[in-house]
Design a protein around this nucleic acid. Structure first.
Lengths: 98, 98
DNA sequence: TGAAAGTACTTTGTTTTTCAAAGTTAAAGT
DNA sequence: ACTTTAACTTTGAAAAACAAAGTACTTTCA
């Protein structure tokens, strides 16, 4: 058996980033504020995890206005979707001992 | 939807600890050396992750002799098995958006 | 109109975690 | 005697996580 750890994506070690990805897999997009409330995080902490994900090009940011309020929403990139899927596949294989 | 992150076990954030648990779910027991080779880790790194898992009472250590060499093997506790299962269940639910 | 509150950050600094490398102990091989 | 192996522990450095405070701009409320 080859080292099963290599196949896991280091970026998804974090529970928070896993949470963000899961939310975005199910929902097309989600706003900063919704994420903050859902995941119960401080602004800074959330922003930095989002930044990690954005650096990896796993998500894109869309800035718009709702009425006159700024609204920042996040959506998965194809790269992000694939990376997450690959990670979950690797995890499943690892657990099943394949 | 409630905060999905809470249900994830912080101890399983680490790829290495996930790897150890996966190996032990499939194999009844495994030795320090086998783990070290399988997961391609330094002694110290592996030992410290095993220690984290042991502190959480997720695994037990068994010391014995093979011939006249010391042999340390690790096995899951029931607590560890359940904690891992719970983590995987939580992860699955999170991803599926339940 | 002026104060408070909301959005979406960035910055700062502390705490926690990770990890490699070196040291340790004890026994075995040569 | 010297080296090797097993299974650590210790040390120290680097990276990551996090909270709190600061920022800039806007809006809402009194």
């Amino acid at each position: 058996m080859k080292n099963p750890i290599e196949a896991l994506n280091k970026i998804f070690d974090s529970r928070i980033r896993l949470g963000v990805m899961s939310v975005l897999i199910v929902n097309d997009s989600i706003s900063f504020n919704e994420l903050k409330q859902l995941l119960e995080l401080t602004d800074g902490n959330l922003a930095s995890h989002l930044n990690t994900l954005e650096q990896a090009q796993y998500l894109k940011v869309q800035k718009s206005f709702i009425g006159k309020k700024t609204n920042t929403t996040y959506i998965l990139t194809e790269l992000g979707r694939h990376a997450f899927k690959a990670h979950l596949d690797a995890l499943e294989k690892m657990i099943k001992g394949i």
